[in-house]
Amino acid sequence: MKLRLTLAAVLVAIPTVVLAASLPLAGSYGTPAGCAAHAGAADSSGDKVLISADDVRFEGNVCPYTNITEAGDKAFEVKIACESGHDEVVRGTLEVTESADGSKLTVALKDGAGPAGEFLPCDAAATASP
């Protein structure tokens, strides 16, 4: 019995891996080049931004969500941690708002690093001119 209690206490004390948060979006949004790269198109040039339920990708960075706080109807404050291409993790805070009909995603950079602007759904961005 004493061994079980000790084992339980040790398991509680061991830090657990923090799982990335997921953003409840209708789909993926981005620039035409970002959506094309996500779709596997080999010839995609230009500004590459992709925002999905799991992460933000921009300027060669992959930035998982570390914390998502609801800020209104389809509006969120999102903390990101960019890992690719950096010696250290680069953090940022985004204000993300999805339109009611899912026709665009507006992203404002609150602090740190991250993309900003209005982004179309990837199916619409793929047909938009760069």
Rank of each mutant, 00 (worst) to 15 (best):
L23H: 07
G85I: 01
A75K: 15
E98F: 01
I14D: 02
T93P: 01
T106S: 14
A75R: 15
V18T: 13
L109C: 07
F119S: 10
V78P: 04
F76V: 01
D111T: 02
S103R: 08
K48E: 01
L7T: 04
Y65N: 08
A125F: 01
G117L: 05
A128Q: 15
M1K: 11
V12T: 10
L19Q: 11
A39N: 09
V49Q: 00
G46S: 08
T66M: 08
K79T: 13
S103H: 04
V56D: 09
T31V: 08
G30F: 07
T93D: 09
S28N: 10
D87V: 11
F58V: 12
G40M: 08
V10Q: 01
A100K: 15
V12H: 05
C35I: 10
L7V: 13
D55R: 02
V107K: 09
G114L: 03
L25K: 01
S52Y: 06
F58T: 05
E70V: 15
L3R: 14
V96Q: 02
K110D: 07
E95I: 08
E118L: 03
T69Q: 15
R4K: 13
M1L: 15
L120V: 14
V49C: 03
A8V: 02
L19W: 10
V12M: 06
A37N: 08
L5Q: 12
S28L: 04
D123G: 12
A9S: 12
T69M: 13
D87I: 12
A113T: 11
P130H: 08
V12Q: 02
I68E: 03
D87Y: 11
G34I: 06
E59A: 13
F76E: 00
L23E: 10
G92A: 05
S22F: 10
A53F: 02
R4D: 06
S103F: 03
G92H: 00
V96D: 08
G30W: 00
E118A: 12
G72D: 07
A75S: 15
T69C: 12
D54Q: 14
F76R: 04
L109M: 09
S52H: 01
K48T: 03
S84F: 00
E59Y: 03
V18I: 14
A124V: 13
G85W: 00
A39R: 09
K74W: 03
D47F: 03
A53T: 13
A108G: 11
L19A: 14
I51L: 12
P15K: 05
C122E: 04
L94C: 06
L94M: 07
Y65C: 05
S44D: 11
V107S: 00
L50E: 04
V90G: 05
F58Q: 07
C63I: 02
K110H: 03
G60K: 12
D55M: 08
C82M: 02
D73I: 14
L25Q: 06
S103L: 14
A8T: 02
K79C: 10
V56Q: 04
C122D: 01
Y65R: 01
L11T: 02
C82Y: 02
A41K: 14
V17Y: 06
S22H: 15
V62R: 04
A116Y: 09
L109Y: 09
I14G: 04
A116G: 10
T93N: 09
L109E: 06
C122F: 04
